[in-house]
C-alpha cells in the first residue's frame, strides 16, 4: 500500500469570482520508504498539497489517502491523533520553542502523546545522538547554529517514529554545506527506518538526495514524463528556482 495516494485532489480558497484554485486535480503517489521532492515555482501549490496530505488543511474535493485513510473525509476530531501517530514535520524556519532545550523540543511530540517527561527526555537524547548533536541536548535553540537547529527539528520529526514526514524547505535557511549535511541525514534516517518523506524545496543543490522529483505548476502535477528520477538535470528548468542560478528559465 502506498503511503500517500492522491486522486483528482483540489483545493479552492474563497468562492465565486474571488476563488483561488490552489490545487487543480492533483494525482500523486508516494511509496513507503521513498524520499520524494516536490518542486515548482512559488505559488504553484506545493505547500498547499503537503498541508492537505498532512491533514492540517482541508481539501475541497477528490481523494487523498494517507496510509489508507482518506484525510478529506476524516472527522476533524480524529486528525490530531492521526497526525501524532503517523506524521512528522520539518519546517523551513525550524519552529523550535526558544524557551525549551534541544532535548525538550525533540520531546514535544512524545509529551503530546502522553509520555512521562523523564522517559520522553531520555528518548529525545537518543534521537539527538542519532542526528549527531547529543552534546547539545540541554542547550536552548538560540545557542545553536542553523544546521544544529534543523537537526533538532529533524529529530523532533522522527521522535514518534511516524510513517510519513513532510518537510517544507528544510534547507532554505542553511548554507550549502550545512544544507547538504542535513539532507544527507534526512535521507539516511529515511532509508534506515523505511519512512516516506515528502520534501518541498526550491533548492536544486539537494535534488540529488531525492528518490523521485515531482514538479508542480498552477496547482497541477506536471505530466509523468517530466517527473525526474534521481536528479535535477532532467527537470524542466522553468519549474525550479535555485540559489546558484542553475535551472532558471
Amino acid at each position: 500500500m502506498p503511503t500517500v495516494e492522491c486522486r483528482q485532489l483540489t483545493k479552492v480558497y474563497g468562492s465565486g469570482d474571488t476563488a483561488v484554485h490552489a490545487l487543480r486535480g492533483v494525482d500523486l503517489t508516494v511509496e513507503a520508504g521513498e524520499l520524494l521532492m516536490l518542486v515548482g515555482p512559488s505559488g504553484c501549490g506545493k505547500t498547499t498539497l503537503i498541508s492537505v496530505i498532512a491533514s492540517i488543511l482541508d481539501g475541497t474535493s477528490g481523494e487523498c489517502r494517507v496510509l489508507g485513510q482518506d484525510v478529506l473525509t476524516m472527522p476533524a476530531g480524529d486528525k490530531p491523533k492521526f497526525r501524532l501517530q503517523h506524521l512528522g514535520f520539518c519546517f523551513q524556519s525550524f519552529n523550535l520553542n526558544p524557551c525549551l532545550s534541544a532535548a525538550e523540543n525533540v520531546a514535544v511530540p512524545l509529551l503530546i502523546a502522553g509520555w512521562k517527561y523523564a522517559r520522553a527526555l531520555a528518548r529525545s537524547r537518543e534521537l539527538l545522538a542519532q542526528v549527531g548533536i547529543s552534546e547539545k541536548a540541554d542547550v536552548l535553540p538560540d545557542q545553536l547554529s542553523g544546521g544544529q537547529q534543523q537537526r533538532v527539528a529533524i529529530a523532533r520529526a522522527f521522535a514518534q517514529e511516524p510513517d510519513l514526514i513532510v518537510c517544507d524547505e528544510p534547507t532554505s535557511a542553511l548554507d550549502s554545506v550545512t544544507g547538504e549535511k542535513v539532507m544527507q541525514l534526512v535521507r539516511e534516517m529515511t532509508h534506515r527506518t523505511q519512512r516516506s518523506v515528502i520534501v518541498v524545496t526550491h533548492d536544486a543543490r539537494i535534488f540529488k538526495f531525492a528518490d523521485r522529483i515531482v514538479a508542480m505548476e498552477d496547482g497541477r502535477i506536471v505530466p509523468p514524463k517530466e517527473e525526474v528520477a534521481g536528479g535535477f538535470d532532467r527537470l524542466p528548468p522553468a519549474y525550479v528556482e535555485t540559489t546558484d542560478g542553475r535551472g532558471q528559465a
Binding site: I56, P80, F82, L84, I112, A113
Partner: peptide
Amino acid sequence: LRHFAVLKAIGATPRQ
C-alpha cells in the same frame, strides 16, 4: 501563536 500552531500540527488536541 506559531508554537501553538506547531503543537496543533504535531497533534496536540484542543483540550491539551
